[in-house]
């Protein structure tokens, strides 16, 4: 007979009797979706973000110019033919921006995938086995967190210049410095979840460690993992842009948003169309991803948001 004096939560009636509110861990996909949809800013950001992704992925389909096509209209201001104008070689800036956005997204997604995998494995192992393994893994995690990652990345990128043009090599290098938060978050989730009785029940029936982690713990930690992964995408794109901006990202003739911003920077005052379109595109994309991440967080755990979406 649990009796909470003030914090009594309304119970949604499901099978005609009163039952508990789905908690963060218990929220089913449908509930999460419903709460997410109540979050107007996040829904708007998701729509804009998706539109931007589609625009960049399918640029060849609807746009006459290609990013490596050299026209003889040099340094033209934006027009109906060249939406964002052209650069000093006569290349179309819109096409280049879309190409750059593609690369940035690819790097972002691949690096996030790798970082999430690594972080979840490290965090789950640390949180489930505890003891010395936890100590060792967390010390490594802290070490990576304290390293000045951009400096190290620059050194690495400089060292392996030949491979550096390769976008997925860049993604993996960035991932090497992006898994730590995921590891920490996963670990703390696993630590709390492993105290739940359903885990004890699984142990009592003889379930293996792997089964418990994969079947019971990770699915219940999925909310935090997804939220953090979303935010990682934005962080990775930003790191890649910084690298490119410093001249160590995706190598020409290919391009990325960071590289475009870098190239346009010198001309920002004379030919602003070289600088602002890729710059704004980058900022908008990052904002969208972050808003979606916030919305997801609130949807997975309305109590942390404090407002229950109203």
């Amino acid at each position: 007979m649990v009796d909470a004096p003030v914090e009594v939560v309304p119970a949604p009636a499901a099978v005609g009797d009163h039952v508990g509110t789905p908690t963060a861990a218990g929220a089913s996909g449908r509930v999460v979706l419903r709460r997410f949809l109540r979050h107007r800013v996040a829904v708007g950001a998701l729509a804009v973000g998706l539109l931007m992704v589609v625009a960049s992925m399918f640029v060849d389909v609807y746009y006459p110019h290609s990013y490596d096509e050299i026209t003889n209209e040099l340094s033209q201001a934006p027009s109906a033919d060249h939406w964002f104008g052209t650069d000093e070689l006569g290349k179309d800036v819109y096409a280049k921006t879309m190409r750059g956005a593609q690369k940035s997204l690819q790097v972002g997604l691949v690096a996030t995938l790798a970082a999430t995998l690594a972080g979840v494995v490290v965090g789950a192992a640390a949180g489930w086995y505890r003891g010395w393994l936890d100590g060792a893994l967390m010390r490594v995690t802290d070490l990576f967190l304290t390293l000045p990652s951009l400096a190290v990345l620059l050194v690495l990128a400089n060292r392996y210049r030949e491979q550096a043009g390769n976008w997925w090599a860049i993604a993996l290098v960035i991932a090497a410095f992006a898994w730590m938060y995921q590891a920490r978050i996963t670990r703390s989730e696993i630590l709390t979840l492993s105290g739940r009785d359903y885990v004890a029940a699984a142990r009592a029936m003889g379930a293996s460690d792997l089964r418990i982690v994969v079947r019971h713990l990770l699915p219940n930690a999925i909310g935090s993992i997804i939220v953090n992964a979303t935010l990682t995408v934005a962080a990775v794109i930003l790191v890649e842009s910084s690298l490119s901006f410093l001249g160590f990202g995706v190598a020409p003739p290919d391009t990325s948003l960071g590289r475009l911003v870098d190239e346009g920077a010198q001309a920002a005052s004379t030919r602003p169309w070289l600088f602002y379109p890729p710059g704004l595109w980058l900022v908008t994309l990052l904002l969208c991803i972050n808003f979606v991440g916030d919305g997801l967080r609130d949807a997975f755990d309305p109590r942390r948001a404090g407002t229950d979406g109203r």
Binding site: P10, A11, P12, A13, G16, D17, H18
Partner: peptide, 9 residues
């Protein structure tokens, strides 16, 4: 028999 009613219904 049954459950205490939900105050929502």
């Amino acid at each position: 028999a049954g459950q205490p009613p939900s105050p929502a219904a």
